[in-house]
């Protein structure tokens, strides 16, 4: 069944697609989806076939007793499926938790309608670009300054809410250097639809160079990121930047 997956995947690629994973965590989540998808197809087909058979008066099912219908359909069928699925999902969930310390921990603060990234040595980036090393896990400690937002880079992993007064940690990992897109997933007011950001993953050496360069540039953080436009594909994001709404609220 999973053999057809690559075929379907072709139609599911995209810069924000959870089905086009670019890291081990997102890949696990995509695999979970495909398992559940094919399982659901089978169960859905079963119910529809039974409904059809009921009308065609097939002798196959007309003689089933009430107990067989209810115990078979209501217990024997769903209980093992649900126990196995929930158990597997909980084990996967355990693996995805940010146990212990990742080599790098970056602070993320959301404020309508911008993202600010703070590195361990005090570098603060607010040009809507997050630099991370590729091939290793990164912890992001996410919070918000005003209302609730949600930090989501679909190709690298799941999302975590940015809640004022709380710090939530999510661990992400990119397999290869490149540019991955992220966005705010929790409705946060008028600028919600433009609250996107870039994640630039670099080879560890290059990442160290960039951090060093940024440290020297401080506090001129308003300048564009040194790597903008370098190499990797960069889809145009016409809603970003220039017409970013600011102010309001607060």
């Amino acid at each position: 069944m999973l053999g057809a997956t690559p075929l379907l995947l072709a139609g599911c690629s995209g810069e924000l697609s959870a089905l086009d994973p670019a890291g081990p965590r997102a890949a696990n989540l995509a695999l979970l989806w495909w398992v559940m998808f094919w399982g659901s197809v089978v169960l859905f087909a079963l119910v529809m076939v039974l409904f059809g058979l009921a009308y065609l008066r097939s002798n196959l099912i007309a003689r089933l007793t009430p107990a067989q219908w209810i115990v078979g359909g209501g217990l024997v069928l769903p209980v093992p499926v649900l126990v196995l699925l929930t158990g597997a999902a909980l084990v996967l969930g355990e693996q995805l938790l940010p146990h212990g310390q990742a080599p790098l921990r970056i602070g993320v603060e959301a404020q309508r309608w911008n993202w600010t990234f703070t590195y361990p040595d005090g570098i603060v980036l607010d040009d809507q670009t997050l630099h991370i090393p590729a091939g290793q896990p990164v912890d992001l400690a996410v919070s918000a300054a005003d209302v609730i937002h949600s930090f989501w880079v679909p190709r690298l992993g799941g999302k975590i809410d940015a809640i004022p007064g709380h710090i939530n940690v999510i661990r992400l990992q990119a397999d290869r250097p490149g540019i991955y897109w992220g966005q705010c997933a929790e409705y946060c007011g008028e600028g919600h639809d433009i609250m996107q950001f870039r994640v630039e993953a670099h080879e560890p050496d290059a990442f160290a160079d960039i951090l060093a360069r940024l440290r020297d540039q401080r506090p001129a953080s308003a300048q564009p990121s040194p790597l903008r436009g370098e190499g990797a594909t960069e889809p145009p994001a016409p809603l970003k930047g220039a017409n970013r709404r600011s102010g309001g609220g607060q």
């Binding site: 126990v83 909980l90 969930g93 355990e94 938790l97 940010p98 146990h99």
Partner: peptide, 14 residues
């Protein structure tokens, strides 16, 4: 039995 079973293994505070 099933809903509370995770107390035996799931991470408590993370």
């Amino acid at each position: 039995i099933l809903v509370f079973l995770p107390v035996t293994f799931a991470t408590t505070c993370l």
